[in-house]
Simulated assay, not measured.
Amino acid sequence: MVVGYEKDETLTPNQKLIAGVVSGITTRFITQPLDIVKVRTQLQAKDNGSTWIGLSWRILREEGFTTFWHGHSLGQLHSILSVASQFHAYEISTKFVENYASQYTSPQFKKVLLFMCGIFAGCASATLVSPIEVIRVRQMVVKAQYGGVLQGAREVYRRGGILAFYEGLTASLMQMGPQVGITFAVFRFVQPLVVEYLDYMEDAGQTEAEKKAAKTKQLLISSSIAGSTAGFVSKTATYPFDLAKRRLQIASHKPDPKVKTPEMSKNLVKCSSLMSCLLDMVRKDGYTGMYTGWAITICKAQVTSVIIFTTYEMVCYAMRD
């Protein structure tokens, strides 16, 4: 039982879409504080000497506990659209590969096509949620200036016009496409291996009730391990584009003198283009500069991947059952 289309699947696409929505809501609620720290870390100069743990304490001390939930409403909308669209696009594209393309291709090339399905899902999701993500990131930085959804949208438009809602889209596509492709590919590879191993370790003399309970446990464990592995590999491989995306998403941001700007949000690192952003990282901090904020990002990616895949699989399992 893996994500993506399977010929003997009993769930409809709409039921899987519901599973994706539930997965997205659950994930965002749990990981929002980590996302705040991650974004703040990525927008600080590397030489400021702050670790992500120190930055967390500073946010708590200077801005209060509720700061960790700035942009949460938009974050929920972003998470629902992002996760649901990823799974839905992946479902549709893998269905095409399984039903049509696989008839004319070798098993090896089919794996390439399935990887491309993941890239398609990531690009579709990144394009869909770009305007929401730009507003959300700026709310995380200066909540008072970007306020609610409408206030944030007006402020983004006032600072950079309609194109401001798509700042960082190129970096987002170059990050999310391969990231989602790698994530789904690693998950599809690792999860069956873990299930097979757990099956091998199970007692052959179990009753039907015990087998059913064991199957649920296997699904939970295998999804957690595969999700964690997928999150680590995919995020590490595409991280420089994630860092560039965040710095591009605040390119047109200018502090409003009428609004109080938090101290750590006054000297943010911004970029005007993807290439100049990547070159500046290397020129100022060496190649390690392309991984500023990597530790907290990997921590969040691990938690996010585990919750996303585990929740998605468990909801699908519950509906099938």
Rank of each mutant, 00 (worst) to 15 (best):
P262K: 11
V259M: 09
V233Y: 06
V306Y: 07
T292D: 01
S93T: 15
P255D: 07
V315D: 04
T127G: 13
Q191C: 08
S273L: 01
I250D: 09
C277W: 07
V306I: 15
Y312D: 12
Q103C: 14
I25E: 03
A101D: 01
Y197W: 11
Y291K: 04
G75Q: 09
S172W: 02
Y5E: 01
I132F: 12
Y200C: 11
K235P: 00
I53T: 12
F241H: 08
A301F: 06
K270Y: 04
V83E: 00
R158W: 05
I36K: 11
F115Y: 14
S234L: 03
V39F: 11
Q249A: 10
I132R: 02
S305D: 03
G49F: 02
A214F: 03
A209Q: 11
Q42S: 11
L173Y: 06
A295M: 05
T105N: 09
T261H: 04
S252M: 08
L77T: 14
V306P: 05
T12R: 14
N14H: 10
P13V: 08
T41W: 01
T94K: 08
W57M: 05
G181T: 10
K111Y: 07
C123K: 05
K260P: 02
T26D: 00
T297D: 05
T183K: 11
Y312S: 11
Q15G: 06
Y317P: 00
A164W: 11
P178S: 11
S223I: 02
Q191F: 03
L114G: 04
P107T: 13
A213M: 07
T51H: 04
P255F: 10
K46D: 02
T51N: 05
L81T: 14
G75K: 09
E202D: 10
R154W: 08
A230H: 10
K284F: 03
E196M: 05
R28L: 14
L193M: 14
V186I: 15
Q139Y: 08
I296N: 02
K270C: 09
V315L: 05
V129N: 05
V180Y: 10
I36W: 05
A171E: 01
A153T: 13
F309P: 02
K270Q: 15
M314P: 05
A226T: 03
T207V: 02
Y166K: 13
D8W: 07
D8L: 06
T238A: 13
E91W: 13
K16M: 12
A126C: 10
K215D: 08
Q139R: 14
T207C: 09
S102Q: 09
L198K: 06
G122H: 07
D280S: 07
F187I: 06
D8M: 05
I36D: 02
Y5T: 10
